[in-house]
Design a protein around this nucleic acid. Sequence first.
DNA 1: TGTTAGCACTCAATTAAGGCGAGTGCTAAC
DNA 2: GTTAGCACTCGCCTTAATTGAGTGCTAACA
Lengths: 338, 338
Amino acid sequence: MDERKFRILQAIIDDYILTAIPVGSRTISKKYETSLSSATIRNEMSDLEELGYLDQPHVSAGRVPSPKAYRLYVDQLLAQGKILTANPESIRGHFQERARQMEDVIGHAAQVLSSLTHYTALVLSPKGTEMRIRHIQLVPVTGSTALLVIVTDGGIVRDTVIRVGEDMDPETLHSISRMLTERLNGHTLSEARGILATEDPGQEQQMLSGLTGLMEAVEKQCAQGKLAVGGTSNILSFPEYNDVEKAKNFLSLLEGKEQLLELLQQSGEMAFTVRIGPETGIPELADCSLVTATYRLGNSRHGTLGVIGPTRMHYGQVFGVLSAMGEQLSRLLGQEKE
Amino acid sequence: MDERKFRILQAIIDDYILTAIPVGSRTISKKYETSLSSATIRNEMSDLEELGYLDQPHVSAGRVPSPKAYRLYVDQLLAQGKILTANPESIRGHFQERARQMEDVIGHAAQVLSSLTHYTALVLSPKGTEMRIRHIQLVPVTGSTALLVIVTDGGIVRDTVIRVGEDMDPETLHSISRMLTERLNGHTLSEARGILATEDPGQEQQMLSGLTGLMEAVEKQCAQGKLAVGGTSNILSFPEYNDVEKAKNFLSLLEGKEQLLELLQQSGEMAFTVRIGPETGIPELADCSLVTATYRLGNSRHGTLGVIGPTRMHYGQVFGVLSAMGEQLSRLLGQEKE
DNA sequence: TGTTAGCACTCAATTAAGGCGAGTGCTAAC
DNA sequence: GTTAGCACTCGCCTTAATTGAGTGCTAACA
């Protein structure tokens, strides 16, 4: 694979990303490599196909980049590191409103991300279990029920109605709350259960035994962060999804969030993760790419944001927008809650 | 419009709802009105078209019911009142898990509703402003910020980070919370602001003046309930939306929830509201129908649930499922939070 | 040895034409 | 008022012809 082949491959990918139509040798020789004849390009393209970088939809059509080609393209893009971060100002403009609940921010971010990229956007909040408990409060609801509110440094985590004994007046609940807060403050949710289980104070034993089980449930519910999806309909703009059947499969996938969560959580803590077509492991996404990035709140907690589009995605632009948005999210969410 | 015409019209609608292909005179004479010849049916159909109940896609196609026809059909369905409530047991089965946050229930309900009807489902929670305050709690977050948690009989309404003076230790916040709770308990959110504004205790004046403005913001944010959408992709199953462009418009409409909210809030407190095609007032829904129903929590608060499908919707079934689901929702949400 | 011009060939996509068939409207007879 | 009969319409499907973008291969050239 010499340098000229690479240049030609790059030209093919660029052109295909722009037009979505298979690109022929003549196009390259006219628009990109004007010093070479189409016949020469043809020979090179033939080689590139043999190497597995190009596919041919049918014999008399142009060439289409294979997943392997995109992989090379993306790796090279990331390696040279000149990702032009999208104008952070323009993104900040979308967020001028008051900071609100995390879920609102997440949802809003997904919408902005999708409208900036014209792809489908995913934003995943940090895992609840990684958040540190700031305060626990039992709030009386009726005589025999109370609301358990757990406040963490990331905002509210969970509120669940629990049954308490009949004799719990608001003041008793408050003192229990204070006790719990004292004991669990600064710990993560996943630690909390263990602490409650080991330290048994005897006094409110009955009360606490119920809580231990409850913490387990809370922990489980928070094991994965909240997921927001934006720009679902964007995918329909692309000729790849002109087929209604395909579009429906894609949308169904987005509705069942479990699979998406799994997919997003696979991407580690790297700056960018790119999964191209088959690399996603999901048949419905065979001709989609998923680009994810990470944003951080403090040291340990991190969330994920990503974009799903056709494999011929405008990767460069997406990298830029993702990194700018990640920065913005870190600022927004880290800011007031920390 | 004699009785026979009506029977024939009904047969046409039934058949079209089932098949989505224009129905011809012969079909009716063979499947529904076997005692009449196709020619007779033809004459009747011609009359029905003149009356505005039938449309003809083109001269050599069968007839298609007009919105006016569906309107008649639905009105008659509702008038005779024999709505067969779908098996409530089967619906309850989908909800066996522990009661959780209202938003979760709403979202889950939308999913169940869509999977039962195969249409797109909408569930709107009761307006926050109609909920009665049960408890107000200021929870310390950092030295200078606190989380304002308002608990209502419908569960948590809102939590917002607010700035408080540097000197607010947890105990002070708690006593303020207790004071606020005492004063506002039992009132709705919309009343709360007025109460805070008039009764000025002087003591924590500075604190409260901030809160008044805050309550206004909270009230505004809660002016409309939470909206959950389910089964977005279902619409793509119908031949009416085989056109990708149309499908995209529809999906975009669902994404921008403002218009949906408006639409849902128009439907008053009647048991059922049906808006057929043009009656929705939204071009994108020109060949959709929206059926909504109401569920109640207690006396005053009510939420809305609805279904969007093609105008040739299976109205009877939808009525049944909606009423069963409404009942179930009333029970689920009213139950533990009341 | 690499590059280029030329040419035959392939095949999807577009267009045109023809036939089919479902369905109608009208008329005349019952 | 109902029905049988018949001519007519027109969307849809199939088939055939045409077009054109693009390829592979070969031979000539630098």
